[in-house]
Every structure is written in C-alpha cells, then in structure tokens.
Computed example of a mutant assay.
Amino acid sequence: MTPALHGKVALVTGASRGIGRGIALGLGEQGATVYLTGRTGSGRSGHMPFLAGSLEDTARDLTALGGTAVPLVCDHTDDAQTRGVIERIRHDHGQLDVLVNNVWGGYEGLHIWDERGQAWNAPFWEQPTAVWDDMFGAGVRAHYVTSQLAAPLLIKARGLLVGISFFAAQRHRNTEGIPYFLAKNATDQMALAMANHLRPHGVTSVSLYPGLVRTEGVLLAPEGSFDLSNSESPHFIGRAVAALASDPEVFRRTGQVLVAAELGQEYGFTDIDGKQPTSLRADWAE
C-alpha cells in the first residue's frame, strides 16, 4: 500500500530534537519528503550540549521509517537563513504541502538553568527581558517569517500550515510567566489570522497543542518533576500532524485550535507504545 503522504513535501522547523523531531518522524512514517531545519546539524548542540539530538540523527531515523529527509542547518532568528530554506524548497519542488512551525527558543533558559530558567516562575518585573526575546524572537517571530516566506508555496499546493502551541495560551496561571502566556496566545491568534488570509486560497491554518511530551529535556528532569503517566512521545505529535495532512477534508478545520490527544481519539492513531493519551483540556479549564 502506498503511504498516505507519498509525494508530499513538508517543512518542519526545529527538528533536531524534541517535538520537532517527532513531527518529522510522523510525517516520514507516512512517506513524505521532509525538510528538516535546526541549529544542530550533527553531534551535540553548541547551545545545549547536554541534550542529544541533531538533524543528522532525525534524518537517519526518518529515512529508516520510509520517508525522505532533507536536513538543512538553519537558525530561524536569521531571516536570510530562513529565506534560503524556502528558496531551496521552491527550487526542488515548486510547492510545499505542509509547514510545521515548531522552532521555539523559549525553554533554553530552563535547560541550561541560567538567569532565564531561574526566574521562570518569577513575577514579570523580576524576569530578565531575554525571556520575552527568546519566546517572541525564536518563537512567534520565527513562525511568522517562515509562514510569510512559505505562503506562496503553500498556496500552490492548497497545503496545511501548523503552529505548535500549548494550553497556556488559553488561560494564564499565577505560575506561568507573562511572556509564555502571550507567546502561546499569539501563536493561536496567528493561526486564526493567517487562516482568514489563506482561506480564499484553500490553505488550512491551525494551531496544535501537545500534552506533556517526553522530550529529551523532560526526561533529563529530576525524578518526580513530572507525572509521565499520561505523557506523549514526540512521535505522537507527528502522527497527529500526519493525520491532518492525510485528511482530504482538513480544510474544515482552518482557523481552529486542535489538541493532539483529541485528534488521536478522532482519527484512531495511538502513540508508539500503543497507548492513547488523554487530552489535558479539562486540567487547564480549572
């Protein structure tokens, strides 16, 4: 049987590790050609050397699953580098079927536990401005610029645009920093606004929420830091994106905020361990 995404072209930003890596694998599993971007081409990251994962690793595992990987080193805070990636896709294929804006610099302070991580739960006046810069520069702005440059290619394919967000966008809690809340909320609002612009061209734009994901950083946290009983592998989020990209009626969802676990229930896919994670929507509604 031909894989569901055979012949489709995707771009996943921030695919060296974590959720981006999982999304790339989920698309590759269904036969897509996946362009992978990130700052770590091979070896260990110069920014976070204790976290495993590189574009080379993702490309190898994606190819083993039956997809085609095109790894491209790119720092998405540099617009010229982002433009180079889009031009490469334009040259190679002339269109883009799926764009997943996943790149996110907001957790870097937590991983290396510098002043940004130490002030993660502090009142906003005690947080360094770098927390905002990380989340909006290597997050929201990077998503906007990549989408802006890729839009003509998505329009040619009547493609799918996915922004990775989180439940914190919906409800601010006292323990969540204001930049985090606003950055995730901006990602959701950007999906809606872009849906309005892209609707006449048949392009679907959505925001997607993972649950608690077993990324390399989460798994390095001290024992007891997270209750992993209802957690998700990064690959599970990839299966959610692949299910959307394979759905011939996905356009009906444009402008919506979606939850990976709820899509699993609807489309019938499971995590790589066969489990069906439960949506965290109720937890965040409290």
Score class of each variant (00 low, 15 high):
Val85Ser: 07
Asn102Pro: 01
His111Glu: 15
Glu108Phe: 10
Gly94His: 08
Gln81Glu: 15
Gly106Pro: 11
Thr82Leu: 14
Pro71Gln: 07
Leu99Asp: 04
Val70Ile: 14
Trp104Glu: 04
His111Thr: 09
Glu108Val: 15
Glu56Lys: 09
His76Lys: 05
Thr58Asp: 07
Leu72Ile: 13
Val98Ala: 00
Trp113Met: 13
Ala69Gln: 01
Ala64Asn: 12
Glu108Arg: 13
Thr58Gln: 05
His93Asn: 06
Thr77Ile: 14
Gly84His: 12
Asp114Ala: 03
Asp114Phe: 10
Thr82Gly: 13
Asn101Tyr: 00
Leu62Ser: 01
Leu96Thr: 11
Val70Tyr: 09
Arg83Trp: 08
Gly84Ala: 15
Ala64Tyr: 03
Gln81Ser: 12
Gly67Gln: 02
Leu96Ser: 09
Asp78Met: 07
His93Arg: 12
Arg90Ala: 12
Asp75Tyr: 11
Leu72Asp: 03
Ala69Phe: 00
Ala59Arg: 00
Leu72Pro: 04
Thr63Ile: 06
Asp79Ser: 10
Thr63Leu: 07
Asp97Glu: 07
His91Glu: 15
Leu62Glu: 03
Ile86Trp: 01
Arg90Gly: 11
Pro71Tyr: 04
Asp92Tyr: 00
Gly106Leu: 02
Asn102Trp: 00
Pro71Asp: 07
Asn102Lys: 03
Ala69Cys: 11
Leu65Gly: 08
Glu108Tyr: 12
Gly67Arg: 03
Val70Met: 11
Val100Ile: 07
Val103Lys: 06
Leu65Tyr: 08
Leu99Trp: 02
Gly105Tyr: 04
Tyr107His: 15
Glu108Gln: 13
Val100Tyr: 00
Glu87Ile: 07
Tyr107Phe: 15
Val100Asp: 00
Ala80Pro: 03
